[in-house]
Structure formats: structure tokens, C-alpha cells
């Protein structure tokens, strides 16, 4: 089976490996210490996994907004996203 048409590149491969590792990490963490639903600044009660998802989805939009609005290096958006994810997971 020739899967060459998937046209993998190093950056996208790293991206998906990171996502997979994150999911695996969350699963292990969940097994070790099950999450408790908590109410933070978000309008609903969330688990750790919910907050990670909200963080990642938010990061995607931060990156898109950054691309649309500025010409500054995208690493800036990544830095902002990292802060955002940390913030949501801690206080969400």
C-alpha cells in the first residue's frame, strides 16, 4: 500500500506526535489520579480533558488571528497560546 499521497512533512508529523503524546499523557494522568469536575472562570463545570480541549481550540484561533492580523513571526502566537492553555487548565 502506497501511502505517499498523504504527503507527510516533518512539522506536521511533529504536530500530530505531540497531540498523540498529549492524549496518552492525559490518559495516564487520569488513571493515576482521576479528575474532579470543577468550576473556574468558564461558565460550566469542566474536567481536565475539557479544559485541555478548550485550551487547544483557543490556541488554534489565536494562531489564525495572529496570521490574519500581523506579519510578526508565528512563534509569538505560540507563546501566547502556551500561556492561554496554562491559564485555562489552571483556572478554567
Amino acid at each position: 500500500m502506497d501511502m505517499g499521497w498523504m504527503a507527510w512533512t516533518a512539522p506536521t508529523a511533529i504536530f500530530f506526535v505531540c497531540i498523540a503524546l498529549m492524549l496518552a499523557g492525559m490518559t495516564v494522568w487520569e488513571v493515576l489520579s482521576p479528575t474532579v469536575e470543577a468550576k473556574g472562570f468558564l461558565p460550566m463545570r469542566t474536567t481536565r480533558g475539557d479544559r485541555l480541549f478548550i485550551g487547544l481550540l483557543g490556541s488554534a484561533f489565536i494562531h489564525l488571528g495572529w496570521l490574519a492580523a500581523t506579519d510578526v513571526s508565528l512563534w509569538g502566537a505560540s507563546a501566547v497560546s502556551l500561556l492561554w492553555v496554562a491559564f485555562v487548565i489552571r483556572f478554567g
Binding site: 505517499g4 499521497w5 498523504m6 504527503a7 507527510w8 512533512t9 512539522p11 506536521t12 504536530f15 500530530f16 489564525l64 496570521l67 490574519a68 508565528l74
Partner: peptide, 26 residues
């Protein structure tokens, strides 16, 4: 995954691809 891969490349044909980063998104 394939769509993500395509989105960062210029696709000329099967096997002929060229990495362009986030240009398409812009």
C-alpha cells in the same frame, strides 16, 4: 491528517510537493 499535511505545502502532483509553511493560511 492528510488535509493538515496538504495545507502547508504546494502540491504540483503526486510526489511533487514543496513546503510553504503557513503561506496558504495567510
Amino acid at each position: 491528517m492528510t488535509v493538515v499535511n496538504y495545507s502547508v505545502q504546494e502540491i504540483f502532483g503526486p510526489g511533487q510537493t514543496f513546503f510553504v509553511g503557513t503561506e496558504w493560511f495567510e
